[in-house]
Amino acid sequence: MGCFHSKITKHTPGYEDPTILAAETPFTVSEVEALYELFKKISSSIIDDGLIHKEEFQLALFRNRNRRNLFSDRIFDLFDYKRNEVIEFGEFVRSLGVFHPNAPVSDKVAFAFRLYDLRNTGYIEREELREMVLALLHESDLVLSEDFVEMIVDKTFSDADTKGDGRIDPDEWKEFVSRNPSLIKNMTLPYLKDITLAFPSFVISSEVEDSE
């Protein structure tokens, strides 16, 4: 049994033991502690209640609390497992774990599927795909004709919907990603590989030994 001195720190309401989070995610204990420092910073940026609200998430991502974006909204919602409109520390670490370079590819594929399944039906539907393409065009200055958008959506759908039932199910998605691995490229954040080195200012002195 380990004996260590814990710094007296006020933990946030959703705080969870780093050793438990490290055991459940690709992070080491030190990395979870570094993430806690990051979490505290983000979660106190607007409302200092130790929880990340959607505005704080947007502010951290875009340096602008009012900048909304369909995909960042979706990511926030997926991080918010409990669906209580805030991200707690455990949710933050477990969700970011999916983006770790060492996380299983299957977790990344599943996360991306949930991200694109806008209406949580268990399928990616053609209308959802179209909606996402239009949202991207709206946020960028890219101008594509409606016909062109329809053509891209049709083409993608005919490639992915191998069963031809008008929707992409998780198996079809998995297969489609295996043919197009770049689709989950943004599910990996190299920053997370060694967050303690990348962000030394977040590292607090800890005598908890990393088990790995």
Binding site: L70, F71, L129, I152, N186, L189, F199
Partner: peptide, 26 residues
């Protein structure tokens, strides 16, 4: 057309979580 709609979507800034890790000095 060889464009893949999901690849296009993934260009969205909303997917770039790197902002979470950037220090702001404000």
């Amino acid at each position: 057309v060889n464009l893949n709609a999901f690849e296009i979507i993934s260009l969205s800034a909303g997917f770039d979580l790197s902002g979470l890790f950037e220090e702001s000095d404000d």
